[in-house]
Simulated assay, not measured.
Amino acid sequence: MRITAVNDRALVRLIPETRHKPPVLRGLVDTDREAEILAELEGETSARLMAEKVGSAALDRRELAFARRASDLSVYGQTHINAAFAYTRAGGNRFNDGARGAWYCSYDVLTSLAEVGFHRSRELGYINVYDDEARYVALLADFIGDFPDLGAAPDHPALDEDPARGYPAGQKLADELRRAGHRGLLYPSVRHTSGRCFVAFDPGIVQNVRPGGSWMLSWTGTPDYTVAAC
């Protein structure tokens, strides 16, 4: 596999936007102090907070953003970086298993929209109800380094469109690359023709995180969705 030098700014990661919604727990209590107590209780089951305290079998707490920036704990993006590696889904994703997360991003917002839109449609398909709205906000980050690149291997098993085949192959590849000391991987988007993606295996290479724009994805009865800037 070829190695590509990267010195790129503003790669796009989309995450669900929740700032426009009221805190979920606030409606259960009468005072701000009571809300703080509930938030502390909720934190006891937060994968991110637990990872920051003690790590996990697959994630050393010293890798996380707060540890390497102890003198500036308020830096923007710290919790987003940590959450990307602490939270996982059952079975994992294309280049991470269920034990350790990763930071997925792309070189343009259209590619990121195609990626999150596919996965949201897939989730709605499980219940066969395509009636939904989802707002996403962009996180922009910079990356510098030399990384393995699947751009010249579009037929690699890890890039199979079917997650049942692509994910196991991708997770195996990612494990081999991490064991060899690689901290990330470039690869062509599976969901957007000509799109280019990057996955960071290591929280330490995610630099200069800042907010970008936001978009609303809407489904009205079919797996197809519309996109509107917010």
Results as ranks from 00 to 15, higher is better:
1 M>G: 12
3 I>E: 11
5 A>Q: 13
5 A>H: 10
7 N>W: 06
8 D>H: 07
8 D>L: 09
13 R>V: 07
14 L>T: 08
21 K>F: 13
22 P>F: 08
23 P>E: 13
24 V>A: 15
25 L>W: 10
26 R>D: 09
26 R>M: 08
28 L>D: 01
29 V>W: 06
30 D>R: 13
30 D>L: 08
32 D>E: 14
33 R>I: 02
33 R>P: 00
34 E>D: 13
35 A>L: 11
38 L>I: 03
39 A>K: 10
40 E>F: 11
42 E>I: 01
45 T>S: 13
49 L>P: 03
49 L>G: 06
50 M>V: 13
51 A>M: 05
56 S>V: 04
59 L>F: 06
60 D>M: 04
63 E>F: 08
66 F>P: 06
67 A>K: 11
67 A>D: 14
73 L>R: 15
74 S>I: 11
75 V>L: 15
75 V>Q: 14
77 G>F: 11
77 G>A: 10
79 T>L: 12
79 T>E: 12
80 H>V: 11
84 A>R: 13
87 Y>A: 04
88 T>W: 04
88 T>I: 01
89 R>E: 13
90 A>M: 12
90 A>F: 12
91 G>H: 07
94 R>P: 07
94 R>W: 08
95 F>T: 04
97 D>P: 09
98 G>A: 15
100 R>F: 12
101 G>H: 10
101 G>V: 03
102 A>N: 00
103 W>Y: 14
103 W>N: 05
107 Y>S: 10
112 S>R: 02
114 A>L: 02
115 E>H: 00
115 E>N: 00
115 E>R: 00
118 F>A: 03
119 H>S: 01
123 E>Q: 14
123 E>C: 05
124 L>N: 02
125 G>T: 03
127 I>Q: 11
128 N>R: 15
128 N>S: 12
134 A>K: 12
135 R>C: 09
137 V>M: 14
139 L>T: 04
143 F>C: 02
144 I>R: 14
144 I>K: 13
151 G>T: 10
153 A>R: 08
155 D>L: 07
156 H>Q: 04
156 H>T: 05
159 L>N: 01
163 P>T: 09
168 P>S: 02
183 R>T: 12
184 G>P: 07
185 L>A: 07
188 P>A: 01
191 R>C: 01
196 R>D: 02
197 C>P: 08
197 C>R: 03
198 F>H: 04
198 F>N: 05
200 A>S: 13
201 F>T: 07
203 P>S: 06
210 R>M: 06
213 G>W: 03
213 G>H: 12
214 S>V: 05
217 L>R: 02
217 L>A: 04
218 S>C: 04
220 T>N: 12
221 G>Q: 05
222 T>V: 09
224 D>V: 00
225 Y>T: 00
225 Y>E: 00
226 T>M: 07
226 T>S: 15
227 V>C: 07
228 A>F: 04
229 A>M: 10
230 C>Q: 08
